[in-house]
Write a protein that binds this DNA or RNA. Structure first.
Length: 393
DNA sequence: ATGTAC
């Protein structure tokens, strides 16, 4: 589907791939971002776009000489990793429950963290620069060590999936945990303070920004890249443990060679070239989809997920959606659905079936097929996956 | 999303 050029009377146009007409507050949020003078060319909205803090979740912005820390958000480096195994779906028969229990034993979820820090964690090179991070997080190094290789809560998940060719995939969704959150909050506070001090006129206080070539910008950029690396590493550690669980259950403990692995952020910023110019690209709930890039677009815990290949669509800043997008808030989902609804909507998925998961019920999310149909000019589908095991925090 | 406070 082609995108729509929205005229929101802001300085920059907004190109929208949304599969719904924008609500008034969503349009205002898009216009606020597009009105900032340092925004490059236009703002791109992905098919799963919805209200966020400062900027829309499912939006991509390129900036010339400034960055908005609240637009990146607090779940720095959040993303997904998927691994294709040499196993076929039939091999999982009768083993799903045990696999789920093993996952829950091997990987801390929710509030839990690792009891001891293993050498695969301490070997990460990022620990060497921990002392260079914001002074406000220095007391949290032990916690960051124990949280490396832990899932967290909310929409974070661990899944075993089977694709349409019967191949078994491992997939998980997580970010930079407490340390990334704290780093982001420290810098968001600084940006707010600076804007207030300078009596800067902003359409929204959550759009306070840092200007390049200032100490505040450099400190934020450094910590942001560190947190993004931590998030990617966190997913790698969990994927290695998940792989071992599956090896134990399906291969008598013998290691297997992955046929493919994709590890992508969907909440982050990086330097990229667009329209011949090097700019800062912020993807807030969006996945990079440069020509040939592999990406992951997960549906809800009862729906399909997709491994995709980017088409390099330049108007989207080479991006695509990061998931289905919520249809209703967690609060409304809990009011709307019962445990019986949850059990019906997660039929065929080996997962916890208790009231604590009702806010993650598939009915609280948009159907993923509509989201995929809306971005056929951004990505092509490489594999279509359906989960048979799902672990949430 | 997270961690802490209410």
């Amino acid at each position: 589907m082609p995108f729509e050029k929205l005229d929101l009377s802001a300085a920059a146009p907004v190109f929208s791939w949304a599969n719904h007409p924008l609500a008034e507050n969503e349009a205002r949020m898009a216009a606020n971002v597009a009105s900032l003078p340092f925004v490059f060319k236009h703002v791109a909205l992905m098919p799963d776009v919805h209200l966020g803090k400062g900027a829309l979740v499912g939006s991509v912005l390129a900036t010339r000489d400034a960055i908005i820390p609240a637009a990146v958000g607090v779940d720095v480096g959040c993303g997904t990793v998927a691994l294709k195994t040499p196993f076929v779906g039939d091999q999982l028969e009768g083993k799903l429950k045990q696999i789920r229990l093993d996952i829950e034993k091997m990987i801390p979820v929710g509030m839990a963290e690792n009891a001891q820090v293993e050498s695969e964690v301490t070997h990460w090179s990022g620990w060497r620069s921990f002392s260079a991070l914001h002074p406000g997080v220095q007391r949290c190094e032990q916690k960051a060590l124990k949280q490396a290789g832990s899932l967290g809560g909310g929409n974070h998940f661990i899944e075993i999936c089977v694709d349409t060719e019967q191949a078994v995939w491992l997939m998980l969704h997580s970010g930079s945990r407490g340390i990334g959150n704290l780093l982001a909050q420290r810098h968001i506070d600084t940006a707010r303070d600076l804007a207030k001090l300078a009596q800067m006129h902003l359409p929204d206080p959550d759009l306070a920004y840092f200007v390049s070539n200032t100490p505040e910008f450099d400190a934020y950029w450094h910590d942001l890249q560190w947190a993004q690396d931590y998030a990617r590493f966190n997913r790698e550690i969990m994927m290695a443990r998940l792989k071992r669980v599956v090896e134990k259950q399906l291969a008598g403990g013998r290691p297997f060679k992955p046929l493919l692995m994709v590890n992508c952020h969907h909440n982050y910023a990086e330097r990229e070239v667009h329209y011949g110019e090097k700019v800062y690209v912020t993807r807030k709930g969006a996945v990079r989809a440069q020509q040939g890039d592999l990406g992951i677009i997960p549906g809800s815990m009862g729906a399909k997920s997709f491994i995709v290949r980017g088409k390099g669509n330049r108007e989207s800043y080479c991006s695509c959606a990061h998931g289905a997008g919520r249809l209703m808030s967690r609060h409304r989902a809990k009011q709307t659905f019962s445990l019986d609804d949850f059990i019906a909507q997660t039929a065929g998925v080996e997962c916890r079936k208790d009231t604590g998961l009702i806010d993650e019920i598939p009915g609280a999310y948009k159907p993923i097929d509509g989201v995929m149909a809306q971005q056929s000019d951004l990505v092509e589908v490489v594999a279509t996956l359906k989960q048979v095991v799902c672990v949430k925090g």
